[in-house]
Design a protein around this nucleic acid. Sequence first.
RNA 1: GGUUCGGUAGCUCAGCUGGAUAGAGCAUCAGCCUUCUAAGCUGAGGGUCAUUGGUUCGAAUCCAAUCCGAAUCACCA
Length: 591
Amino acid sequence: MSIIKNIKEAVVQSLHELYEGEFNEGNFQINQTKPEFEGDYTIVLFSLVKSLKKSPEEIGQELGNKLVNKYPDLFSGFNLIKGFLNLSITDQYWINLLVKNHQDICFGKQAMNGKKVMVEYSSPNTNKPLHLGHLRNNFLGWSVAEILKANGFEVLKSCIVNDRGIHICKSMIAWQLFANGETPSSTEKKGDHFVGDYYVKFNDEYKRQVAELISNGISEKEAEKNAPIMMQTQQMLQDWEAGKSEVIELWRKMNSWVYEGFDSTYLSIGSDFDKTYYESNTYLLGKDIVQEGLDKNVFNRKEDGSVWIDLTADGLDEKLVLRKDGTSVYITQDIGLAKQKYDEYKIDQSIYVIGDEQNYHMKVLKLIAQKLQLPYADDIYHLSYGMVELPTGKMKSREGTVVDADDLVEEMIATAKHHTEELGKVKDFDSEELSQLFKTIGLGAMKFYLLRVDPKKKMIFNPEESIDFHGFTGPFIQYTYARIKSILRKETATQQSTFNERLLPAEKELIFNLEQFPTVIIESAAELNPSVIANYLFHLAKSYNSLYAELSIANAESIEKKNLRLQISMMTSNVLKSGLQLLGIQVPERM
RNA sequence: GGUUCGGUAGCUCAGCUGGAUAGAGCAUCAGCCUUCUAAGCUGAGGGUCAUUGGUUCGAAUCCAAUCCGAAUCACCA
């Protein structure tokens, strides 16, 4: 049980004994005591003033005395400043916590709760390589999955590959027109980049044709519709849907190039999936649901045969769910896939890691599922995250203004190499160990950079200023870990369990912070927000570095202090490691 | 235009279920390696929390209006 919970219960119990009336944890607020005052936790008394009809000072005195007398193992004293009751926790409480948990590498993790969750993330289009925005998505999805596991959920990571549609055909047409039979292997290009280049080529040619048509006196709208390359692409999509064998063959070939490229990117960034869905297999799903919706009068059919749902009463619009030609649209497929996931895995919750540009779409999806009274409707959750933008604005694949994922990974690893070599601390590493270290640090920096920000908020990435390795960063925390391990390789904490010397402020601060780790894990899961963990780990590492600079560990002033600090060090390293693991970041034993 | 989200230090971000003098990192400046890894530590400067009004003992936080920015509102995905 967390200390805050302990304190709250003690306060509620004390209030009951002191005063008439009903009390619960919502009647007062508990905060960390500000550093300028003495104490560890503070009860804010103002909210009790009205119901008790006493002054804050009176309540504070009575409650403070009661708490200290009734719970001498928990509280060592109190002081009262205005309406704030500052409580000091006994050293013994902190020491017990440390002794009990310092060796537990699972500290903070919850027992299995029997619930099953699917987290869908990544979900790339197969016409272009992954970029920085996809990285945010991948790291977020992976991290959220780990955080849920730490909270006792069984988690399935899934991915829907958008492997069909007009965008793929654009790359295919451009390849047919301009490639002269070139392939990734003939050009020694990574497959996804190779295909992406033709996507850009398509747009260049398309723009050229549109401009030409306009100069021939055709309106812009007409030109965009009738540019030959666009008409060829539309035709190709129809051929694909009709199953025309040359088109299917080309489609398979180009997608296989892309998958080869994706596999290597996923491997390097550490993304993996338990289940991969392909849109080419799921795009026909959902049609049976349309009939169900018509039967239930949730949907209505228009004269031309198209099927709609009216969501205007819910503040949204009328949405199409089936085209007049009988084919299903995006939202229909998604409802179908949602059902398939549920039927296949009996999941209790379905989380979709998708950018906030699709907020409206996901709202519609959930609303339709609810109106159809599908059993899983309420368990659909859109984990919406903000776009990664450049100082110049949004990234646009078709205009080539993107930060490529592979390039960035490579750059981060190179930067890690550069810093490491400059510092020259690992000259005895062999080349295998070195490349592993550069990767750990480079990826650590990148993942931390993208996860330390609240997912809901859009973030700006400036390619001119490379991602930092100092301060509020992954390498800072990794470095703290490596420092601790360096001590722990030379010194071992003995199993001392009673400490008589008073805790120094730096020592107490560390244990105080360590105590919060389980609460932080719970909070990050409740909010589906890895940045909660990132912020916590930074704060913890900072505290440790302060202690490290201020106090000697190996040469402590007494054996007792040495053991105490070794135990603190051990527990800190465990928490840093498992916390970073929840962010998908590895730790080096030395750096 | 409707809906939704955002605006906190020069820059990037915490804090937002109301609490004490609004915090970090980067950048700038000043110190600290004969002692456990200086990717570190200590300190300084830097703020009209977009604006205005309201609720409250108390507002960056809640409410309203205004200004600015973004997303979205396709028989595209």
